[in-house]
């Protein structure tokens, strides 16, 4: 740069007192000359105000990728926050779910009757997630959330959905990798029993803590399988055989109906 603007020229420019051509010249020079730019008079009060406004936006915490995904799906802000804050939906829980399923798959491939292991675990895995999704003792923020208007049934169902979706997705993925030749329809044999167990524990949790309810239901499932397995002419597989699916569907519908009825009673 061979020449510089005088402070008087810059002031005249900044106060809008120069003609068009001079303004063009000054602008072309300012674009490339940082020292001259500092001559432009700055209204300190305006700068502070402008920066304060700007900082309001800039300092907002950036939403988590999961929050952004949920928001993109059309959920409201409050719901998104609650879903994202579901305890036990942490990495540890997901990692352990994957670990259990991988073990079950390994057993199914390696052991002669190993696919039984998978049949036993697949319905219980989502249940375990639900058991740890809500309630005193498992949610570090339970004391806080319990006094919000969202608390209670509504939050419980939200959290349950938040846990069920990834758990069911993982189980489906694992079921598709089972050794026996399965079509997508037979691979989801465990889905209805699993949902029924979850619904059962939700119904139960009206009277007992959710973790206790889920534990009881899960235990019931395992015990009944064990009893069937030890009996002579039945196998545990008959519980999830195709002809039992309508029964599971009926049970699920009944339990869901109970839940909805209770929700209706509570809200009205």
């Amino acid at each position: 740069m061979t020449w510089h603007l005088t402070p008087a020229q810059v002031h005249a420019y900044a106060s809008h007192a120069v003609d068009d051509v001079t303004a063009m010249s000054v602008e072309a020079h300012l674009m490339h000359c940082a020292p001259c730019r500092t001559l432009v008079p700055a209204d300190q009060e305006w700068i502070d105000r402008s920066w304060a406004d700007l900082r309001d936006v800039v300092d907002r915490p950036r939403p988590h990728p999961v929050e952004r995904l949920l928001r993109a799906l059309g959920l409201r802000d409050g719901t998104v926050k609650l879903l994202a804050a579901t305890p036990r939906l942490y990495r540890a829980w997901l990692v352990s779910t994957v670990f259990v399923l991988v073990c079950a798959l390994f057993a199914a491939h390696a052991l002669p009757k190993g696919s039984l292991v998978f049949f036993l675990t697949a319905p219980v895995v989502p249940l375990a997630g639900v058991a740890l999704a809500y309630g005193r003792g498992v949610d570090p923020a339970h004391t806080l959330t319990s006094i919000t208007p969202m608390a209670g049934q509504r939050l419980l169902f939200l959290r349950t959905c938040a846990v069920l979706v990834p758990a069911v997705a993982l189980c489906t993925l694992a079921a598709l990798m089972m050794p026996s030749p399965t079509t997508p329809w037979t691979a989801v044999f465990w889905l209805l029993p699993s949902l029924t167990l979850v619904a059962g524990s939700l119904v139960l949790c009206r009277w007992v803590h959710l973790s206790l309810a889920s534990g009881a239901v899960g235990l019931l499932w395992l015990v009944s399988l064990a009893v069937l397995g030890s009996a002579d002419h039945t196998t545990p597989l008959s519980v999830v055989a195709p002809h039992t699916q309508p029964w599971w569907a009926t049970a699920l519908a009944a339990l869901t109906g109970m839940l909805l009825l209770r929700l209706r009673v509570r809200t009205t």
């Binding site: 420019y13 900044a14 602008e27 300012l30 730019r37 500092t38 432009v40 008079p41 700055a42 209204d43 305006w46 700068i47 402008s50 920066w51 700007l54």
Partner: peptide, 12 residues
């Protein structure tokens, strides 16, 4: 950056 550039951008 805001302090440095906002005044001349505003004038322009």
């Amino acid at each position: 950056l805001h302090r440095r550039h906002a005044p001349w951008l505003r004038a322009r």
